[in-house]
Design a protein around this nucleic acid. Structure first.
Lengths: 255, 255
DNA sequence: CGGGAGGTTGACAATCGTCAATCAGAGTGG
DNA sequence: CCACTCTGATTGACGATTGTCAACCTCCCG
């Protein structure tokens, strides 16, 4: 059943450790302290809201499986997706540390998440500077991605925007250990892509088709993205991975 | 002369203390520790780059006076302004903590800034949890503003976008102690407004004129913004100050 | 008085949105 | 196995917000 807390193992938070370790060195003690964080695990269905705009939040949420988005609704009821989250990411550090949500977090697919009391996050952050720094850096990298998205919707045309998003997914899925850089499954509908890029679903459709026609991507079915020439797509998408702050030894960061 | 370090007083970093204290309680020791942070003060002219995209950064920068922006340049050479900074704000925590800049920071007006070694910021953050938390919260609030900007350029039309920006300035200038909520001087040209809203200068011009014609703003001269009916402008701009995470006792947060 | 930056305006073009119809595929029940 | 239904994808015709280009204006300052 949705929303039912389930028994947990000592290694449930392993994805969180993996994520934090990616950019910041942790000791065994740090890792164990993270794994020992009290938490409950819940399973969510697509479209389920983990947090709603204006909610008062007391817990932080780590996505263990599935995909989620953050979004805002503007006056006309239109939606802007602000970020897409995957395996191991803290989808709600932002809202929980500020006490009151300034945007919503919603599941894109089915998935599971671990809820950790905000106090515990704060405690571990200052008791263990390495963990604190890892959390801080994570926050900063997310902010960096957010800036790139602002530039993407603000100053790029539809084709460039979409190509950029496809490149970002490509790398992030790979780094998260969820797929192949040149061949992956989009976790979003064209409606959702539209909300992420500030376009309409109709225009997303046409633009994707254009990318396909021009041989920049292949699609065995609408969601199955296949990138033939990565550099070419990256160029079309004005994509430079620097803003993702990936490790320097990460292969294939062309663009 | 530009870029010349100057003698400093023990209270140079007062604006930084003021800013951090706004959302997080600090003890006298915390405040003193901040004021004692080693730093150099520099004066900058308009258009001067404090940090350039891709720079390796070793210092963090607190704006003591004047205005600065962060921005990115996209493929066609167009610019997207990501944030506007004023008195007391850390314009470069983002870049410095990540080591390599993922965007540029540029002065809008003349002004002064204090440069603090990154190591010192890190040290104080973990030696003094209250200061650390204040810095973290500051980072999070900035991220919140960045998200709102993404929604602004992604999903609002020109008139709404500009009205929103004018409302944001109005409140932020007031909170920073730099002006009247209903009567202030824009620190930006229409070109720069265009880069902040993802529009063109021509369209910004027309849209501002539209707001003026409709009585939503008055302009004694192009940069002198006068807001007759704040709530009406906020409504036009789909503006709700929640994302700024201002103190609850802050007056005049209608919208 | 000349030069320059910034602001204003008009004519026209184009990207992108709107509306609406149709299609394709997955799941369901008889 | 075959309607039936639902969601998501696709396509076409048309409209509108916004961009482009280019001229001109206004104020400030040396």
């Amino acid at each position: 059943m949705e929303n039912e807390a389930r028994t947990m193992h000592a290694s449930t938070l392993e994805p969180m450790v993996r994520k934090l370790e990616y950019r910041q060195k942790l000791t065994k003690e740090d890792r164990d302290a993270i794994l020992r964080l009290p938490h409950t695990v819940r399973r969510y269905e697509p479209h389920h809201y983990i947090v709603r705009d204006y909610d008062f939040t007391e817990t932080s949420c780590v996505l263990l499986s599935g995909f989620a988005v953050r979004h805002k609704i503007v006056a006309g009821g239109q939606r802007q997706i602000l970020a897409v989250h995957m395996h191991g990411e803290m989808v709600d550090l932002q809202n929980s540390m500020l006490g009151r949500a300034d945007h919503s977090v919603q599941m894109l697919t089915t998935g599971t998440a671990a809820l950790i009391p905000r106090q515990e996050i704060e405690r571990i952050a200052f008791e263990r500077p390495a963990v604190g720094k890892a959390l801080w850096i994570d926050t900063l990298v997310e902010a960096s991605i957010s800036r790139e998205w602002t530039a993407n919707v603000g100053r790029r045309d539809a084709r460039t925007r979409l190509a950029h998003l496809l490149c970002e997914f490509s790398l992030r899925l790979k780094v998260a250990g969820l797929g192949d850089q040149t061949n992956y499954e989009l976790p979003m509908t064209q409606d959702q892509l539209a909300d992420a890029t500030g376009l309409t679903a109709v225009h997303v459709n046409r633009t994707l088709k254009g990318l396909e026609t021009d041989g920049l991507i292949g699609r065995r079915h609408p969601r199955a993205i296949e990138i033939g020439d990565w550099r070419k797509l990256a160029k079309t998408g004005d994509f430079n991975s620097a803003y993702l702050h990936l490790q320097e030894d990460e292969p294939a960061l062309q663009g």
